[in-house]
């Protein structure tokens, strides 16, 4: 017979710290409510400090940088990290939507990303949504001042790098899970007054456009 005490439940005073709200939310959240008890649909007052986010993202880049060879590898790694966020964001945003539905057309899912995703992540819409004039299967979503990389200055030897590869990963995950498989990359496209302007380039798979053709 096994000793039943080996399966003893954790005592009540060893409360799991991760489920209690941290002191950083003091003044904005009711401290007696744990993160898991908060209403998923209430976003007001649940914003995260930009400094905290910037430091966390900075550490993520430094972590990724130690484990890659070259810029492309680093962007791929950031893309993977973003992918995990995107999977969850789609679920959350559809859940928060007043009349949720599954997008089936290319333009409506892109508009969802341009508006709902950007509002959910950054509190504002993306600045533009364009269709490529050169390639049928390419679309671009641009942000004039990407919040996530606001404080990041990329050194000259890495000038090809755009840390918004993370956001590209988020977008790719959303498109993937909504059955619009695509390749998504981030590029710096500065214009007057917005030196950090970033374009998220979306290249859909062939099957997506074929299906779109059938739905017309």
């Amino acid at each position: 017979m096994s000793d039943p005490s080996a399966y003893a439940y954790p005592s009540s005073n060893s409360a799991r710290l991760s489920t209690t709200s941290s002191v950083y939310t003091d003044g904005r959240q009711n401290r007696t409510k744990s993160l898991l008890e908060r209403n998923l649909n209430r976003t007001k007052g649940a914003e995260v400090s930009l400094s905290a986010l910037s430091f966390l993202f900075s550490e993520m880049i430094q972590y990724a940088q130690k484990r890659v060879n070259g810029i492309q590898d680093l962007e791929r790694k950031l893309n993977e990290l973003g992918y995990r966020v995107g999977l969850r964001m789609l679920e959350l945003l559809v859940w928060r939507d007043r009349n949720p539905k599954r997008e089936t057309r290319v333009l409506s899912i892109l508009y969802f990303i341009h508006t709902a995703l950007w509002k959910g992540l950054f509190g504002k819409q993306a600045d533009s949504l364009e269709k490529s004039t050169e390639n049928e299967d390419e679309f671009m979503i641009s942000d004039n001042e990407p919040i996530l990389t606001k404080y990041i200055s990329v050194p000259r030897e890495l000038s090809q790098l755009n840390c918004n590869a993370f956001i590209a990963g988020v977008v790719e995950a959303i498109l993937d899970s909504a059955q619009f498989p695509a390749r998504v990359t981030a590029h710096t496209v500065p214009i007057d007054g917005f030196p950090l302007r970033t374009t998220i380039l979306i290249k859909f798979d062939k099957e997506v456009l074929e299906r779109e053709e059938m739905l017309k």
């Binding site: 900075s58 404080y151 990329v154």
Partner: peptide, 21 residues
């Protein structure tokens, strides 16, 4: 503290190279 310390490409105690700073 914004453009140097939050920049992932800056190493603490090393010379500062940040375009935004």
């Amino acid at each position: 503290s914004n453009f140097v310390m939050k920049n992932p490409f800056h190493t603490p105690e090393m010379p500062i190279r940040s375009d935004q700073f």
